[in-house]
Write a protein that binds this DNA or RNA. Structure first.
Lengths: 123, 123
DNA sequence: ATAGAATACTTGGAATTCTAAGTTGTCAAG
DNA sequence: CTTGACAACTTAGAATTCCAAGTATTCTAT
């Protein structure tokens, strides 16, 4: 049931379910209880349950499938705190670093060619 | 208005408002149009607008104040894409770059060995 | 046994209504 | 001018209802 803590019911349910997902009680790929079951369990209307589900969906923890159910996303554990696309600035700097590394590789290749040829000659 | 793109109305509105927040059309601290105004603008019921607002609230972009309005959070621009732990893609690229650096280091070591041995001999 | 129809269940979206609580503006009285 | 009452507006939460679309199970006919 939803307690009178000043916290709205839908957020309490969302928090509850999020905790279960994070602790593994609701494993990745597992189905959440149906809306009807959650309504009974928490003694609230469907609109409250749906609002809670919507929060978790927006957080990326769950995904629903019409007619089938709502499931914990496979990457939900990571998604709880990770899994944001890297910002474009980070990606840009990574690209630059990869370019620098490639250039270094080429310069070293040139050195190798030169040095190891000289090694042969000097023998 | 909400278009018939297969995308639910509430998500279209949320996307629309999020874009405005990101592009600065809705500056941090600025008030969003009221629910009534958004209903008129998008020609939808209040429940659709509220659902859109709820999504943006869950994303941390906005905050509502009873009786007053819904406002863009001051840190909304940052919240949109920054301050998140690095994504798995970033971590993967970093790992690859570490490997590349190790390889380059080994090749340089071989070069140094060769070059400095020849230096000794040539004296 | 198999296929199709019917039924039950499910999510998702949307509309309508109501209540609670707060803010803002207007107007009348002092 | 100030203050208080009231109306209008606002967000937030919640309930109820309806519809669309899909899945799973059961039942019936072949």
């Amino acid at each position: 049931m939803v307690e009178k803590t000043g916290q709205p019911g839908y957020l309490q349910i969302a928090d509850d379910l999020r905790t279960q997902i994070r602790t593994g009680s609701l494993a990745p790929g597992a189905a959440l209880p149906s809306t009807a079951q959650l309504c009974k369990r928490y003694d609230v209307s469907a609109s409250v349950v749906k609002a809670a589900i919507s929060v978790l969906r927006t957080e990326g923890l769950i995904v629903g499938q019409q007619g089938k159910g709502v499931f914990v996303r496979e990457d939900a554990a990571a998604s709880a705190s990770e899994e944001e696309p890297a910002s474009s600035e980070v990606m840009e700097q990574l690209a630059q670093m990869r370019n620098t590394l490639a250039t270094l590789g080429e310069r070293i290749a040139e050195l190798e060619k030169t040095v190891f040829q000289e090694s042969k000659r000097s023998r």
